[in-house]
Structure formats: C-alpha cells, structure tokens
Design a protein around this nucleic acid. Structure first.
Lengths: 185, 185
DNA sequence: GAAAATACGGAGCGGTGCTCCGAATTGTCA
DNA sequence: TGACAATTCGGAGCACCGCTCCGTATTTTC
C-alpha cells in the first residue's frame, strides 16, 4: 500500500525537475547538482534521495522524448522511401541532441553502461533506429555495411561537433548533409 | 642575458612533461594536474609556473605533432589525386586524435579561443587542411560547399565518436569511410 | 664565500560530487 | 483533536578538483 507519496516529497520532486531542466539547458548536462538543489529551494541530500545519480535526473527529463523518438522511428519504417525516412529520423535525433550541451556524451555513456538509468530508453531508441536502417539497406538505398551502433555514434559525433561550433544548428545541418551522402549506397 | 635557464628549472620542466604525457595517455586530457605534479616529484606551484594552463602543457606535448601534420598537408597538396590525398590526411589526423582521450575536445576549444596556447598550432593545421580541401574541390573530386572549419569539425566529431566506442580505432575507420563517401562530389 | 637572482613547494581558497544521520514534517489511528 | 510512527528533510563533512600566493631553499654570479 506504499502507493501514497508524501505531499512534500512529491512537491520537492517536481521542484527539482524544473530546476534541473533549467540548469541543464543553461549550463549543460554537467551543471552543478548543488546549484540545482539550491535553485529548487531544497537540501542537497533531498536531491540525492529523489535522484541517486545524475543519470536518474536526466532520465526523468528525457525518457519520454526518447520514447517518442523510438515511436517515430517505427512509424517512419513503414515509409515508401526508407532512405529518406532514415535521414529524416537522423535529423530529428540530431535536433533533439542540441537542447542540452553534453547530451550526446551522456547518451553514449548510457549506451555503454547497462547499469545507467538512461540505458533502457537509449537502447530502445538505438534499436528503433536499427530497424529503420535495415529497411533502408534492404531497399538498397543505404550502404549494407553500416551497423546501428555506428549510426548512433555517427549521429552523436555530429551533434557533438555542433556543440563545439559557434552556430551549432547550422554546423549540424551541414555535417548531416555530408553524412547523408556517405550513407547512400 | 636571461638565456641561461637554471639547472633545476630545466630538470623539473622535463620531469613534468614526461609525467603529463603518461597521465594524459592513461587518464585523458582532463587528468588531475596535482597528480601530474606528484608523479613528477614536484610541487603543484612548480607545475603552474612552468605551464600556467593545461593548454600550455598540451601545447608543449603536441605542437610538434601538429606542425608535422601541417607539413604533411602541404606535401600532400601536390598529389596527383587531391581527393585521395585529402582522405589520407584526414585518416592521419583522426589516428593522431586517439592518443589522448579528450583530445578532439581540446583541439576544438583551442580553435575557438585565440588566447589559448594551443590555438596557433591548431589553426595552422586547419589552414593546411583547408588548402588540401580547396585543391580537391578545384579538381572536382570533393563537394564544393564544404569549408575548412566544417572539415575539422567533422574529423573531430568522428574522433570523438571513436573515443566513446568500445573499439575506437575500428569505429573511427568505419565512420571515416562513411564520411569519405559524403565528401565526394 | 657572500650576495643577488631565481625557482621551489605547499598551505589555503572556493568549488565539486556524494554520504550520513539527527531533526523536522507528514500521515494514521485512537 | 492529539499522540505516535513512518517518512522525508537538510546540511555538515569528506575527499577531491583547479588555481594563487609567498616564505623558503637553491642556484648562479661576482
């Protein structure tokens, strides 16, 4: 019957989430957790009880987005032009990676570490991307020797390069355009 | 007459460099500077006097390598097949980026910050790569809408993606192969 | 060998991630 | 309504980080 959560706990949970969202957006995924707790008007211990790791915090903020991306991939995998569908999806993936600086690194770390709270949603997204990739390969529109892991790494690498640039969105667009040509068979 | 350097100063300088080389190789470019000083058998203050910033330390370790890469680009720019020459050079660049984890990030940061001690050699390398790129574009072998900044960002992004992977060298090779196709016009 | 120039080393400051436990708050039941 | 139990809170404290500052030690010069 431990379904009921104490009122203050629920309140602090939400305060922490909005504070974290703002901090990650302003200072990247390596923002100070102390600052986040302070901004939420909460002790540092409270933050760690609600979210034992930084990944747990990210997971709470991003899981729904990754799920949406997974669904989007499944939806696009039925498209008539699987090659274009794949590129469309890659574009959306890269666009989402720009919201928090450091996000590509967090995603790659989560994929590497099965213990990470982010792992499940990231892996699900990769699998969906892999499905999309295979469709495009079977249609002969994309090089056959590319794996799902490579596809994700490529997208993350381009998104990372965007972060390092003065105009991230513009840089990602150009690099994605280059990569698109390289994926075509 | 301040040409003469005190004997202990020169000795500590060298001790710090070898300690830094080992630390960066083992733990990446964000290795603890205190550890490096300790490993060199030297106080933390001594480290900071010899190398005021982490970039200064990196610069001392990498300048010659970047210079060599610049010369290599100039040499390759006279090749008969400028497209292949560019890809060859990109391969060497990416291969060198694997020596220290975090190196691509340091290079991109140095290119962004003109105050950085690493800036000069990085910018020189970028310029040389730009020359190589232009030759390949004039020969009609590479897309005309790619800039030197994009080329460097691309290489850094792929190298970064390699770092995140279980088998960096293998991942970089595959991603570079994809990018190569995308650069062709 | 004494004096001047130079370099050394680490205590100390403010920051980080993270833990641990006494104190305060909340929900429950008489 | 009030007392008790369960739950949650909050921040002191630890070890680490980058970096500065200055009394002390070493080296060179004369």
């Amino acid at each position: 019957m431990a379904e009921t959560v104490r009122a203050d706990a629920r309140r602090n949970h939400d305060l922490l989430l909005t504070a974290a969202r703002e901090a990650f957006a302003a200072r990247g995924t390596d923002a100070s957790l102390r600052d986040i707790a302070r901004q939420a008007g909460v002790g540092i211990g409270t933050l760690y009880r609600h979210f034992p790791t930084r990944e747990a915090l990210l997971e709470a903020l991003l899981a729904s987005r990754f799920d949406a991306l997974r669904q989007r991939a499944e939806q696009l995998s039925a498209a008539a032009a699987p090659g274009d569908a794949l590129l469309e999806w890659l574009g959306e993936l890269a666009a989402g990676s720009v919201t928090y600086r450091g996000l590509p690194e967090s995603v790659m770390a989560a994929l590497r570490d099965e213990q990470s709270r982010l792992h499940a949603s990231c892996a699900g997204m990769r699998a969906a991307g892999g499905l999309l990739l295979r469709r495009a390969q079977e249609a002969g529109e994309v090089r056959a020797d590319v794996t799902a892991a490579q596809l994700l790494a490529l997208a993350a690498g381009l998104a990372w390069a965007g972060e390092q640039s003065a105009d991230p969105a513009d840089m990602v667009r150009h690099l994605l355009s280059i990569a698109a040509g390289g994926l075509r068979s």
